[in-house]
Computed example of a mutant assay.
Amino acid sequence: DNRIKIIELSRNYGAAAARWEGMKLSKGELVFTLDADLEEDPSLLLTFYDKIKSNEETDVVFGYLENRKGGIVEKMSGWFFYNLFKILSGIEIIGSPVWARLMRRSYVEALLQHTEQHLFAIGIMKIVGFKQLGLPITKKSKGYTSYSLRKKVSQMLESFISFSDKPLKIISSIGLFISFLSLLFIFYILTSKLFFEEYQSGWSSLIASVFFVGGLNLSAIGIIGLYVGKNFQQSKNRPRAIVKNTFNF
């Protein structure tokens, strides 16, 4: 069937990169995306099509979960992630978005203008604007997830670094606050020594202070390193994925 097109990548670049390559090679005025595990019902295409056709101003119709599937840990981690993302980036994401979405060509072209290597697609899909309509859906569960805790933590860090510089501002503010407290403490020591009593210093307080400031410095350097690493990866301008073969294009 010549209507079926297949794209083979040279290796596994991850789901987001594969979807992006599919959108790059798409040609239709409407583009529908759906995860291959079919946890989202393919018949959503009909529902989304009716919605987007009934309102010419709507550019995207997408599904989201009002209640995340899984156990208490998965639900709480999802709630924590999206709320922390909102605090750090100022971007509010409705519910828990899924990849089932029907998009107009103009919206797809806007997405493809984003060429960063580390792509937090849900955030990109939000900030490009356009008129978006979210519909609550239910998602089937296959009983397990291949999305490990390590991958979730990695995505969380990627999303925060890609969309917010607040961690840098927070670290800077903490540094200034500690410096201010240090000045107050120095003033207290000088005042005690000059006017009241001898200040008895101790090794324990000195060592604790050194370790505290040293740990703070390491944390700050680590966060700055994450941002520098992002710029390093982007400066190489490598392709997000490489298409090995296409069929019926």
Rank of each mutant, 00 (worst) to 15 (best):
T115E: 11
D37C: 07
E56H: 08
G14F: 10
M125K: 13
S219F: 15
I137T: 09
W203D: 06
V213T: 14
K126S: 06
N12W: 12
W203I: 13
F247G: 00
P97A: 03
L9S: 06
S204Y: 13
S43G: 03
K5C: 02
K51E: 11
P136T: 06
K53G: 05
I87M: 12
S10K: 15
V31R: 00
I186C: 04
L157E: 08
W99T: 07
E109T: 09
S148Q: 09
L184W: 11
G63P: 00
S26H: 06
G22L: 02
F163L: 03
I178P: 01
L45R: 03
S164R: 03
I94Q: 11
K5P: 00
I161F: 00
L133H: 07
G202Q: 07
I189C: 05
Q117N: 04
Q117C: 02
L38Q: 12
G78T: 05
L102N: 02
L149E: 10
S89N: 05
M23T: 01
F163H: 10
I93F: 04
Y227S: 02
I161Q: 02
K244M: 14
R101N: 07
S54K: 15
F130C: 00
F249C: 10
I178V: 15
A121P: 00
N2P: 12
K24E: 15
L190K: 03
M76C: 05
G90M: 11
E74W: 13
I72D: 08
F195M: 04
E92Y: 14
K230F: 10
S201A: 13
F196R: 02
F232C: 00
H114V: 13
K193C: 02
L30I: 15
N231T: 11
S164H: 07
S54D: 09
G214L: 09
V243M: 08
G123N: 04
S192L: 10
W203H: 09
F195L: 11
F195A: 06
L183T: 04
L216V: 04
E56P: 01
